[in-house]
Nucleic acid binder design. Structure first.
Lengths: 184, 184
DNA sequence: TTAGGCATGTAACCCGTTACATGATTTG
DNA sequence: CAAATCATGTAACGGGTTACATGCCTAA
């Protein structure tokens, strides 16, 4: 009754082609950065487990133990089946937590200065996110017909953009309202 | 080097007045529902620990062990200090995960029908969220001057509204685009 | 009287990060 | 040759959910 989405993210990426644990982490950090994350401490043990269960296999010619070298994994048919099974399940709604909004809720405990610092940090962070998403969109637009899922990736990127635009607009407004309020 | 925001949420709520673990959970589920969550399995043990550390105390006249009855906790001065200390720290950025977007990324594995079901669920969920946020906003607008933090709560609610509006608009557009694409 | 909400609590278990350890390869 | 990056892996630890156990009180 647990999620363990990690294993399915790994299977999904390996379904696009064989790669190493390091590659998987890199792709998640870049392509998925707005809606997913994993750590090595999750990825490597999970690769091992998936291999033992027969959902993955080492590529032949690669060391399967001993020497510390690149280890490329390939998904098996069983692995593809497991992935397809997970895909067809309704997506779990993850709990969301925002320490930023929590602290805004108790803003009267803080100085005006401190609050506007927090809001400023929030704003800058989402400004950067927006920049990255816009760059990713341009790239993706030029190769939208290359793969079946590029059309979908574009839609995901655009959602990310709109959300970040909302964050930015809201933060800017809030800073203005705070100033107006201070010398009323 | 760990977060443990749970204990500070508890301290923050108890700083508004004494209450039970049950009350704390209810408030988080209702007022914080768009940006925070806790389970009883976190709250009760944490209340115990905080009491042992002297940041909380049982209200006199309440059973401090034995009979299973209402147990109201009150924050101590030390507890207030700990809370203020946490408040002044820059908010941690929590990792965010969306299984929904992950599955959209691999949408070509699914039938058109399945995808639009997922998008439809997403849309309905955020439609409900938007309704609730709008109702909370009306309530809050009528009592905005009652407490120092009501002004802030209003801003938080409005951010939630805008984000949910973006989700809804995006989902509607996506469903339209999917239909256009199907009979091209 | 019974269903539902109030109310507290624990144990098992998994999730996930962090810190640490190790070493190869590439590039300035 | 040194630094950065590639690359794999484990152990410890805390975070957090879920399932379970218990029992009171109140309204239909």
């Amino acid at each position: 009754m647990r999620k363990n989405a990690t294993r399915f993210v790994i299977l999904g990426l390996l379904a696009e082609g064989p790669m190493t644990g390091y590659d998987i982490k890199k792709i998640i950090d870049i392509r998925f950065r707005y809606f997913w994350s994993e750590s090595y401490g999750q990825i490597y043990p999970e690769l091992k487990k998936l291999t033992k269960e027969g959902l993955l296999e080492h590529l032949p010619g690669e060391p399967d133990d001993g020497a510390r070298q690149k280890k490329r994994y390939k998904i098996t048919d069983e692995g593809k089946g497991a992935f397809a099974g997970w895909m067809s399940l309704p997506p779990e709604v993850e709990r969301q937590r925002s320490e930023f909004l929590l602290k805004l809720y108790w803003a009267p405990w803080l100085s005006q200065r401190k609050i506007s610092d927090f809001v400023g940090d929030f704003s800058r962070r989402h400004g950067k996110d927006l920049d990255i998403l816009q760059r990713m969109e341009s790239e993706m637009e030029s190769i939208v017909d290359d793969h079946a899922n590029h059309w979908w990736i574009l839609r995901i990127l655009r959602l990310g953009q709109r959300v970040n635009e909302v964050y930015l607009g809201w933060a800017k407004e809030l800073l203005t309202e705070m100033e107006e309020r201070e010398h009323d």
